[in-house]
Amino acid sequence: MLSKRNYYLILFSPIPVILVSLGVGRYPLHLMFKSFSLGETASFILFNIRLPRILLCALAGATLSVAGASLQSTLRNPLVSPYILGLSQGAAFGAALAMLLLPYSSYMIPILAFIFGFSAVILACSLARIRGGFSTVTVILAGVIVAAIFTALLSIVKFISDPYRLSGIVFWTMGGFYKASWDYLLLAAPGSVTGLTILFFLRWRLNVLSMGDEEAKLMGVNVYRERLLVLISATLACASVISVSGIVAWVGLIVPHIVRSLVGSDNKYLIPASAAFGASILVLTDDLCRSLFSFEIPISIVTTLVAAPYFIYLLRKVGGEWR
């Protein structure tokens, strides 16, 4: 590990970030306190609006980042993420489809999101598999194709749904946390916490998987089975989050890279640190989205605008190392 200090700083960063974020918003903090107790409005805003939103944001940031890091390792490809692989688009399509077909059973949203997110991943991986291996370029190209397919399917759903539902469906393509509530958090948490837990315990194994199929097998790994487990867990976690937040681009790609440069590549440390860093960074980004202007900015716009230049810098700086 590069630095133990960096690691622990990152690991505990979500705590101050979450506390500070509770104070961010239209309704100013100093008005919340009447003498020493919270007013009724204030406690409603704090506990039923801000807190679930912040927690959902943190969960989404952690999930996308951990999924990104895990996918990068299993496919031994530093340029992969849920968004680039088409997983996000597949899950968003599934969520929109559930909304269109079964508008009154919200628990179906994460289920369909998972089914289509996983189909997208499997499709991308089988398209990319050439001669028993994944090359960096083919995985990206396959991801582009799969993402395009599911974006098109999502447009069809948009096209045939009525104006009332349309706004709900557009939401998934833009991404955002303004709809967050305790109900949403409960909808996302089971799947994403399960997926994250599996990836957390599996994390050292990701090192071995990233050595490539042949070498992993030489070290006794059942490559097919273990990669499938990683893909399922990552998809489960992402699809659950995307069901309630829509597509949040770039986080899953950029966070693992930043964290790798701070704590090193060993997934034993990379995974927990990515979770914490992803949580902090997305909560802070959402703070900006809801306080910068008098209206809310969709979060994907901000993550893209911030992450793309960083990614270009990254590509220039270390691209050569990864061929």
């Binding site: 390792s73 031994r76 599996l202 994390r203 194994r205 790798r260 590549s265 034993k268």
Partner: peptide
């Protein structure tokens, strides 16, 4: 042939040899 991937520390690569003796969910 070995294609390098992420910049693991040398010691992290060597210790991977322990894999066949570890469970799916454990580390060296």
């Amino acid at each position: 042939e070995h294609e390098t991937t992420f910049p693991y520390r040398v010691i992290d690569v060597v210790v991977m040899g322990k894999t066949p003796f570890l469970d799916l969910f454990s580390a060296p």
